[in-house]
Design a protein around this nucleic acid. Structure first.
Lengths: 367, 367
DNA sequence: TTGTACGCGTTATCAT
DNA sequence: ATGATAACGCGTACAA
């Protein structure tokens, strides 16, 4: 196969380098550049990698040629040597997570931060296929990714121990775990639950209904904890009758259904804390149907601060999260991990904030 | 080749073979397996790749060891030889595209289809960095991706010729181009514009206002064409005064603003066709403020059929697109392209459908 | 300062 | 049926 080498080379010697039209996918390699520049391949490599072991002029000469030939380093070859792929994996339990504005924003943040750090992003979601039982280790084992951002909304991470054992750098996104050994970044759901509940409490409500998302996800559990905390702090006892479980994915429908139940209670709540703006929309719908005025007859508070929440009737008081920040922070953490840095903070809780509008009555000063 | 990967990967390290603790990232290679199995490395390779040149028992023996050792082929090394990376690039002009439900769904479709075909997905967006002037060719030149799905909503593709010259398989997503040489898949915006307008026409409206998105994006242009077509077909003349340009990104705000203008016209429109449901929400808000009843005093039709559109007051008549299908189709096309297949259809327009609800008056039979 | 040579993990082409 | 070995494109000690 030496003939192949010969065939590849460009014979024309240097200076005004005759650049051919680059037919199809060009396959310029270090070797070709070396041939043209009449230097050794390793010299070219040094020039490309901006090594200090090489004089400026030589470097510039080589770089000029490389430029003209439209050279690009083969990242596969590089990765084979460096044992790195310069790409981050975003691991999704199901493809479903891709939907919804929250995740979109998280992804957006990750993307932004990763290009800033010179990393590519590989999206991978678990499928139901049997051969994917190695997921997501197949990706790191195959050296496709250097580390992973694991998006997981379930309360229990199934493979956490396997994950740690694997020794691959990873950051849990959207899941908070106490264990300092597990880097994670998540929204402060407890805070959110507390903020919303306290707001209602301040408005004088004592029976506050809650419409949660799926009871398995941490968003539900965390916010519920915050709700209970606030109640306890106000000296109120938690009434299980006041909490109904909806579904984030079918916010409006399940929100309506839950609101019906809540409002049919003998001692009905005077306020409802919905764990998403969509759920809140369902509540508002039911209220409208029942002739209940918001906020006079029923206070409603949502969660997420989606674009249209300010434009509902009445404008919805809600809790704003910061999914974009979650993405950037998580990505930054992973990048640090990969570069061997010690994380100054391994478990971060991204704060949320209350957005007071009209659906809970008159505005309060300290909101 | 891939079939071999099927059997590989078992969690429990087992007895016979002396398996070391797999400290950190395991680096099991063909060579190590060969050592243990006491065969040549190429024999192992054959076993892994399910070659017919090797007896069943040898193959099984080797596969068993590989399994036990948790072997996974290094895709970098493989790619170096095969000149393929088995990954598809999703090329975004700006990170901004990641947001919004439409793109999420497209991505979701792409993801689903790609894993089905054994491809990984690399997300890459153009940044403003100077050195990114080679984007997205840096990715293919570096052999990071085998082909690309280019998401572009602008009417004019800037680098189309460069793209074709590069010789990299690609599919334009969300952009329709007549040229049969350019594979693309996009929503049928013209149809959508026509459907919506005809619906309004059938309800008796003659002055139909339009609120578009940015005038540069094909979604706007296409739907506007459809609007004009329908008008012309009905013998109506197009009145430029009736079209206002909003922004998809700030749907509600700009929708309101445009609606104000439209409704302040001396001969105000009796119906408004908004190019997104969010824009339509803005319209509804203005209508409410002005004491205009919908649909009695003003008919409103939206676009996108977002989750909450059915729950607005009144439920919004709209045009449903199929972004998920756009994703799967585009991905399938690219996969075919990569496998050398001839595409039976290079330029596909994904149909949309009218979703009739209450915001345009009584329902029509042939909608 | 620059060249030589080896290794990264695989596949493929020879032999044997 | 299996082994030896040359690519693939690059980085890098080690020489020169």
């Amino acid at each position: 196969m030496k003939s192949a080498e010969l065939g590849i080379g460009i014979e024309k010697p240097m200076s005004p380098v005759p650049v051919r039209p680059l037919a199809g996918r060009s396959r310029i390699t270090l070797k070709e550049i070396a041939n043209i520049a009449r230097v050794n391949i390793s010299t070219v490599s040094r020039a490309i990698n901006d090594s200090p072991l090489i004089p400026r002029e030589t470097k510039e000469m080589i770089l000029a040629i490389a430029d003209r030939m439209n050279y690009f380093p083969n990242s596969l070859a590089r990765g084979l040597v460096s044992q790195k792929s310069e790409t981050l994996g975003i691991i999704l339990p199901k493809i479903f997570f891709l939907q919804g504005p929250f995740f979109s924003q998280v992804l957006s943040g990750i993307e932004h931060e990763s290009v800033k750090n010179g990393y590519n992003i590989l999206i991978a979601s678990a499928t139901s296929k049997v051969k994917d039982r190695m997921f997501p280790f197949n990706l790191t084992r195959a050296r496709r990714i250097d580390g992973m951002l694991i998006i997981n909304e379930n309360r229990k991470i199934q493979n956490l121990s396997a994950l740690k054992k694997e020794g691959v750098p990873f950051v849990l996104v959207n899941r908070y775990i106490e264990d300092a050994k597990v880097p994670c970044v998540a929204p402060d759901d407890v805070l959110g639950g507390r903020l919303a509940t306290e707001h209602l409490l301040r408005a004088g409500h004592r029976r506050i209904g809650v419409i949660t998302g799926s009871t398995r996800v941490s968003a539900t559990l965390g916010r519920l904890d915050g709700y209970k905390e606030a109640l306890a702090h106000a000296g109120l006892v938690f009434d299980p009758q006041l909490v109904e479980a909806g579904l984030f994915q079918q916010g409006i429908e399940t929100g309506s259904r839950c609101a019906e139940k809540l409002l049919s209670l003998p001692d009905r709540p005077t306020a409802i804390f919905a764990f998403s703006d969509e759920l809140a929309m369902g509540v508002m719908q039911v209220a409208r149907n029942r002739g209940l005025r918001i906020p006079e007859d029923l206070a409603v508070i949502g969660y997420d601060n989606v674009a249209y929440s300010a434009h509902l009737n009445p404008p919805l008081t809600t809790v704003a999260q910061n999914p974009y920040a979650i993405g950037t922070i998580a990505c930054q953490m992973l990048v640090d991990l990969l570069s061997g840095k010690k994380l100054d903070k391994t478990n971060v809780l991204v704060p949320v904030r209350l957005v007071v509008r009209d659906s809970c009555g008159h505005r309060h000063r300290n909101a």
